[in-house]
Amino acid sequence: MTDTVISSASKEVVIGFERPFVMIGERINPTGRKLLAEEMKNDDFSRVEADAIAQVSAGAQMLDVNAGIPLADEPALLAKAVRLVQSVTDVPLSIDSSIIEALEAGIDAYQGKPLINSVTGEQEVLERVLPLVAKSGAAVVAISNDETGISEDPDVRFDVAKKIVSAANDFGIQTADVVVDPLVIPIGAMGTAGRQVFRLVRRLRDELGVNTTCGASNVS
């Protein structure tokens, strides 16, 4: 049995095979939300605060925090968002960025053990992100794509996940602290995607012993 423990300053969430489903709210993300992006750039975090409170009230057990805004100071914005969200909620956070400096700033601002979102199978990304995960003692989302992109073949996505888990172990990161995103392909693009991802999740659990996460609405 594999348990992934994520914590805030006062609350712990455990992701595991025999554990209840964990919902991660993802509204705090300026991508595709022009008004939120503009507000955050102008140091207005009122919508971030409102979204955090609303998602927890709706049942989210964790929150993902992203501050990816072009031409903005993402490290500073992410650190401020993390501190604000932790001041108004007690749930653990997923710190979300593709910029290593932003991840560092978010981790430095965080109280507890966060989930880092994310690392991929690209060698350059592995070498940048995994040392930070190991140093901070965080857990990490492992996304099953690499330099070749997202494969429709579940065996290829499994192999990418296996590569990431192995690399994480090499950096001293426990398998329990790697949560694999097997990448749900929309049914509109591939009719067998739903059944395929269930088989892949089972294989990841049985063969690699890892927990998984995915965007539930992606399959639609």
Rank of each mutant, 00 (worst) to 15 (best):
A50F: 14
P182Q: 07
I6D: 00
E38H: 13
A134W: 02
Q86T: 06
K162L: 05
G112E: 08
R195L: 12
F45A: 00
D73A: 02
Q55K: 13
A52V: 07
E124N: 15
S217G: 07
V219Y: 11
F21W: 14
V65Y: 09
E104L: 11
F17G: 11
V219K: 07
I173W: 01
V160K: 02
V197L: 12
P182H: 11
S94W: 05
A58G: 13
L208D: 02
E74H: 07
V91G: 00
K113Q: 12
K11E: 14
E124Y: 15
S8T: 08
T175F: 03
N42P: 09
V91A: 04
F198C: 12
M23C: 12
G32N: 09
D159I: 07
D177L: 00
I28F: 01
F171V: 02
V156H: 08
L183W: 03
S8K: 02
P30F: 04
F17M: 15
T31A: 11
R195T: 14
R205Q: 14
E38R: 12
K163V: 03
E12S: 13
K135D: 11
V156L: 10
K11S: 08
K11Q: 14
L63H: 06
E127W: 06
G32H: 10
I24A: 05
L126T: 03
V133E: 02
G121I: 03
G59N: 09
A193V: 04
V65M: 13
C214I: 14
D177M: 00
A72L: 09
N29D: 08
S151M: 01
S118T: 05
V82S: 00
S7V: 04
K11G: 04
A189C: 13
Q86N: 10
A105S: 15
V197T: 10
L130C: 09
C214Y: 12
F45G: 08
N145F: 05
V133F: 07
R195Q: 14
V65K: 00
E152Q: 12
R19I: 01
N169R: 15
S8I: 03
Q196Y: 10
A60W: 08
E122Y: 02
D177T: 03
V201A: 15
G172V: 10
A216P: 04
N117W: 12
Q174L: 15
N66K: 07
G137N: 10
A176T: 14
Q55E: 13
F158R: 01
S144P: 02
T2E: 06
A109C: 10
G59Y: 07
T213R: 08
I69C: 09
L183I: 14
F45T: 02
A102D: 07
A109N: 05
L78M: 06
G215F: 05
N218Q: 06
